[in-house]
């Protein structure tokens, strides 16, 4: 169980301060797959990195089994690193491509001294390769990353994480670089991992339709804020925030008879200038009211598993 509370990450570039995370709270509970969706710049990647202590926040805390992860040291820190893994969007970037696949996967085993001898290490690596569907594993183990396709290499990256038996995985756009035909296979690995080992997963994506298939709960982020979150069913079937509604409407449906829907996205064509204090979304929001321009709305529960930050509700 991992929980981020009121996380704030600000990036300073010359004269502007970008609030990548502006008071974001998330919780991933036992055996849950939680989706985070948002457009580029919404802070979703920063959220994943902050939860894993790869990015220090200026405010807020991350609790892992009740312990603040930014204060872990020594053995506890190593244990945290071992049990919490991350999968990146671009596997070619995330893997040191000088190394053979075997060494890529064995790296974690060596760092955490999980194998007592070479044979044990080899067995663990081969098992990991088999687990992610890279057969024959011997052949893959001794190839170089740039001999593999994106889908294959992403499986290697997942194997590298799974070999450590993590309890929590951040998957940052794990399939968006990959061809449609191999995406489902990758998502399946995560689902199986959750079912068999109870691994908690935070799935970060810009594609809400994928989340519909695998997430239990979904957080919608917009410019460093969570604007709506709730169970996948509630959020997808009854999206409340105008942005979430637009996000769902904008997903093209593979059916020519549903054309009208894609072109019914409600959003302002001409954006207003943001005044620095209102709701972050009002410049594009077709329902913007005066109150939206004055103060940012807080997250509010509309039911026990559905929260939204919007003055409409």
């Amino acid at each position: 169980m991992i929980e981020g509370k009121d996380l704030r990450v600000y990036f300073k570039t010359r004269d502007v301060e970008v609030r990548a995370l502006d008071g974001v709270s998330v919780a991933v509970k036992e055996k849950e797959i939680v989706g985070v969706v948002g457009e580029s710049g919404s802070g979703k990647t920063t959220l994943g990195r902050t939860l894993l202590n790869l990015q220090r926040p200026v405010g807020g805390e991350v609790l892992w089994n009740g312990k603040n992860v930014f204060k872990l040291r020594g053995r506890e820190e190593r244990e945290f690193r071992r049990r919490n893994q991350i999968i990146y969007q671009n596997p070619y970037e995330a893997i040191d491509i000088r190394l053979k696949v075997y060494d890529v996967i064995a790296e974690g085993i060596r760092v955490h001294r999980l194998a007592s001898n070479k044979e044990e290490e080899k067995e663990m690596v081969m098992n990991a390769l088999r687990d992610v569907g890279l057969n024959p594993e011997e052949e893959y183990a001794y190839s170089l990353p740039n001999q593999l396709s994106g889908g294959q290499l992403q499986r290697v990256a997942i194997a590298r994480a799974l070999v450590l038996n993590p309890t929590f995985i951040v998957a940052d756009e794990p399939v968006s670089m990959l061809d449609m035909s191999v995406r489902a296979g990758i998502l399946e690995i995560f689902q199986r991992q959750r079912e068999e080992k109870g691994t908690e997963i935070l799935m970060i994506t810009h594609d809400i339709s994928t989340l519909g298939y695998i997430a239990d709960r979904i957080y919608v982020m917009y410019q460093g804020k969570v604007i709506e979150h709730g169970s996948a069913d509630a959020l997808l079937e009854k999206p409340l925030h105008p942005y979430t509604q637009a996000l769902i409407t904008a997903v093209p449906i593979p059916d020519p008879s549903e054309r009208a829907k894609l072109f019914s996205v409600k959003i302002k064509e001409k954006e207003e200038e943001y005044n620095g204090k209102g709701c972050k979304y009002y410049p594009r929001c077709p329902f913007a009211m005066q109150s939206c321009r004055e103060k940012e709305p807080e997250l509010k529960g509309v039911s026990s598993d559905h929260y939204v930050a919007c003055y409409l509700y």
Binding site: R49, L52, L54, E77, R78, R81, R82, N84, Q85, I86, Y88, N90, E93, A94, I95, D96, I97, R98, E107, G108, V111, H112, A157, R160, L164
Partner: peptide, 26 residues
Amino acid sequence: NRTFVEAARALGESRMRILFKHIVPN
């Protein structure tokens, strides 16, 4: 600042190990 270095950090590698296993060889 490359992702694979961050990935190494996420795996729990120490700074020294990252330096000699990933930075210097590259």
